[in-house]
């Protein structure tokens, strides 16, 4: 896959070229492309003080970064302690069944990516699921499937 490197240059120009900008630059790259294309890392390494090793090291260390494309919507099932106690495992099963994919996978039509997240800090509404930037709380198996059904309709 080839990407528009001019968009990468624009991000670097905005954020800065110093090694301390590695994380903000990668975050913006991910905002722009919805994942971190390896071509972007190679390009930044050629044009700035950041090295490929540093960028790849950072991109693989932090959970936020994805090196492969994702679906249109990202479904994050929270697995914080309160959500775990409240049945996050069951929610995951129900959503996996509904979408026909396992956690960490994209649906074949690239509409959804199903992931898990350590804690979104909405513990009093556990168990919760975050879809893009919207948090859905007080769920159970049925309600979590309904949330996805509602997105479809």
């Amino acid at each position: 896959m080839t990407i528009d490197l001019a968009r990468v240059d624009a991000i670097v120009a905005r954020k800065g070229e110093g090694p301390e900008m590695a994380i903000p630059v990668l975050q913006m790259i991910q905002d722009e492309f919805r994942y971190v294309p390896i071509e972007a890392i190679e390009h930044i390494a050629k044009t700035t003080q950041m090295t490929e090793a540093q960028l790849y090291g950072v991109a693989t260390f932090f959970a936020q970064f994805r090196l492969t494309p994702v679906g249109e919507r990202i479904i994050k099932v929270c697995h914080g302690t309160a959500c775990h106690v409240g049945g996050a495992v069951g929610l995951t099963e129900a959503i996996e069944e509904r979408l026909g994919v396992k956690t960490g996978e994209n649906t074949p039509d690239m509409k959804y990516t199903l992931t898990s997240v350590a804690c979104v800090g909405c513990c009093s509404l556990a168990p919760v699921v975050m879809i893009d930037s919207t948090t859905y709380g007080r769920l159970d198996r049925k309600k979590s499937v309904k949330v996805i059904d509602d997105l479809e309709s």
């Binding site: 110093g18 090694p19 301390e20 900008m21 590695a22 994380i23 903000p24 990668l26 975050q27 950041m50 540093q54 090291g57 950072v58 260390f61 932090f62 959970a63 936020q64 970064f65 350590a118």
Partner: peptide, 26 residues
């Protein structure tokens, strides 16, 4: 403001600082 990128260990102070400096948060 520096946005973290999702690493629990970055709550540890030296890892947090490594992350602000643009390195792996170790």
């Amino acid at each position: 403001i520096k946005e973290g990128a999702g690493a629990f260990v970055c709550g540890e102070e030296t890892a947090l600082m490594a992350s602000i400096e643009g390195r792996r948060g170790m």
